[in-house]
């Protein structure tokens, strides 16, 4: 390379290549993404987050929550379980058959053949699909995170480090807003030995007025304010919790299928 122009051309070529592969191509593939149908349902996914939750994402951004929390549930694969719904007219044959068959953690083919054999014996079965992997086993989500989960977010806060647990499905996992508020104010009052910094500045400690605030936190004695004072969440804390409540990965999609847990029968 004898002159600057050659260097310039070569650098420009490589940069264009890298831009084309990792900026232009993703934009062409995903930039026009729309809502997708939910499996076995007429619903579409995702819906835009409600207003306070969208504001909460900005609180999440401003305080750098993504420095310690990811929103990316990982999954190794899927497994099928065959579940007997009714024994049918020949229960003893079915139960004999069940004793000889492996019914959980199957791949698709063995699940099909098992359910065929039980059906042939007269039993009524259902094949359930579930995601597998350590994140799923820990209860962090029902499936892995997919691009659709973040369609309406700005900024997308995927995170890259798990000092704290993954939050992609925290709205389903820990659905109590009061728990969340207390955890933000004093993490160690709920999780022993937590290294999460307390976000006391998102709360106001004030003298109890004529009527105690209905929003005041119900804190254990060790963390409670002085007598006659109450701890009330500021709007930012409410918004942040609304955002956390809006985080769900519990909807089955074409590219991340699973069988939703059966609703409890009354």
């Amino acid at each position: 390379m004898k002159n600057g122009f050659v260097i310039f051309l070569s650098v420009a070529t490589v940069l264009l290549l890298s831009w084309g592969a990792l900026v232009l191509a993703p934009q062409m593939q995903l930039g026009g993404a729309r809502q997708v149908p939910v499996l076995n349902s007429t619903d579409v996914y995702p819906l835009a987050r409600p207003g306070t939750a969208a504001q909460g994402l900005q609180v999440y951004r401003a305080n750098g929550c993504a420095a310690c929390h990811t929103e990316q549930v990982q999954q190794d694969g899927v497994a099928c379980d065959v579940v007997l719904l009714a024994a049918g007219k020949n229960p003893s044959a079915v139960s004999n058959l069940l004793a000889t068959l492996k019914l959980t953690g199957l791949d698709e083919g063995s699940a099909l053949s098992a359910s065929d054999r039980i059906a042939a014996a007269g039993g009524k079965v259902e094949t359930r699909i579930r995601a597998t992997g350590s994140d799923i086993a820990r209860g962090w989500g029902l499936r892995h995170s997919v691009a659709e989960d973040f369609l309406y977010d700005y900024p997308v806060a995927l995170g890259s480090l798990r000092v704290g647990p993954d939050l992609a499905d925290v709205g389903r996992r820990l659905p109590d807003p009061n728990w969340q508020l207390q955890h933000l104010y004093a993490p160690r009052s709920l999780v022993k030995g937590s290294v999460m910094p307390p976000f006391r500045y998102l709360f106001e400690t004030r003298k109890i007025g004529a009527v105690p605030s209905p929003d005041a936190l119900n804190l254990p004695a060790e963390f409670a304010p002085a007598v006659g004072y109450e701890v009330v969440p500021k709007p930012e804390a409410q918004q942040l919790v609304a955002y956390l409540m809006s985080l769900h990965t519990d909807v089955p999609l074409y590219n991340a299928p699973f069988t939703p847990p059966a609703p409890l029968k009354p």
Binding site: L22, L30, L151, V156
Partner: peptide, 12 residues
């Protein structure tokens, strides 16, 4: 840009 394309650009 929309959705996770943001993350792709930021990682790039």
């Amino acid at each position: 840009v929309r959705g996770v394309v943001q993350s792709a650009v930021a990682w790039w």
